[in-house]
């Protein structure tokens, strides 16, 4: 494996986007992430699944420092993730995140939601930020809602806006934390379709999700986590048809059985 660089230099050709080595995390006494070793290449699509409490969300939240890991190394796009504020800022600029509960800013319009980060983080002029925002809103197929407010949109529309908002920063990596778990069934498809299109366009993504159909369609690798550790990972076909570990088998039977 290519050795990740320690400095803040970044090269856009860097192949390994994420590198986690021997990462451990505790919440108080609870050992929530155990010996995590993970590498993600540019262009890879990863799906992380597992029972609740297995640490999947914590794993991806460690990647943009929404959670702090206490042991091990994490490198994102060649930058080490530690307490250095400059590193954290840089990493957050290159990593986009979509949350289960959308977390759109309710007091700003859709367009303003998307423009906020480019203006204040990348110091983009307003006209250009608006152009970028409209471009991505068109990409997620809701440009006509630009002047509305989040409270006026349906859940599916809000989540698509959230995806557009993250894309406006033109990140190298997109993290999805159970993006469809809070949606009504009829709206899940529109969001998944958007994510599939994103994947088709070559975005590196790590998704925590229960949508196994999506995993089969899009994933390069499926990772199964249980009790804080990565138990099994494989290509989707092999993963779903030929799970190796007993725990994987149990989980799959629960998820796919009914």
């Amino acid at each position: 494996m290519a050795q990740p660089q320690n400095t803040a230099e970044q090269s856009v050709d860097q192949k390994t986007i994420v590198s986690m080595r021997n990462v451990n995390k505790w919440f108080g006494q609870f050992h929530v992430l155990r010996d995590i070793n993970l590498s993600v290449d540019k262009g890879e699509r990863i799906v992380v699944c597992g029972p609740s409490g297995s640490g999947k969300s914590t794993l991806i939240r460690c990647l943009n420092r929404l959670e702090k890991h206490q042991d091990g190394d994490i490198f994102v796009h060649g930058i080490e993730l530690n307490n250095d504020v400059k590193n954290i800022d840089e990493i957050r600029r290159e990593v986009g995140m979509v949350f289960q509960h959308f977390n759109l800013f309710p007091h700003l319009s859709i367009l303003e939601n998307c423009m906020l980060a480019p203006i204040w983080v990348r110091k983009t002029p307003r006209a250009e930020a608006e152009e970028i925002a409209m471009h991505f809103l068109t990409r997620v197929k809701i440009p006509e809602q630009a002047s509305k407010y989040p409270g006026q949109l349906s859940g599916g529309q809000q989540q698509r806006v959230a995806i557009a908002r993250a894309l406006c920063m033109q990140p190298q990596l997109m993290l999805f934390d159970e993006p469809t778990s809070a949606l009504d069934p009829e709206m899940i498809k529109e969001v998944l379709d958007t994510m599939v299109e994103l994947a088709d366009d070559g975005m590196t993504m790590i998704c925590v999700t229960h949508e196994m159909g999506f995993a089969r369609r899009v994933a390069d690798r499926v990772i199964f986590m249980d009790e804080g550790q990565i138990v099994e990972q494989n290509e989707p076909e092999a993963f779903f048809n030929n799970p190796q570990s007993d725990r994987t088998k149990l989980f799959l039977s629960q998820i796919l059985g009914h």
Binding site: H31, R34, D35, D41, E227, N234
Partner: peptide, 25 residues
């Protein structure tokens, strides 16, 4: 789907045999 590049530590297919130890914080 793309084959996972072989120069990544994670191989195509990986199963944990032994549980990682539960360490004190």
């Amino acid at each position: 789907k793309k084959a996972i590049p072989s120069d990544i530590g994670a191989q195509a297919g990986y199963v944990r045999i032994e549980d990682a130890p539960l360490l004190p914080p």
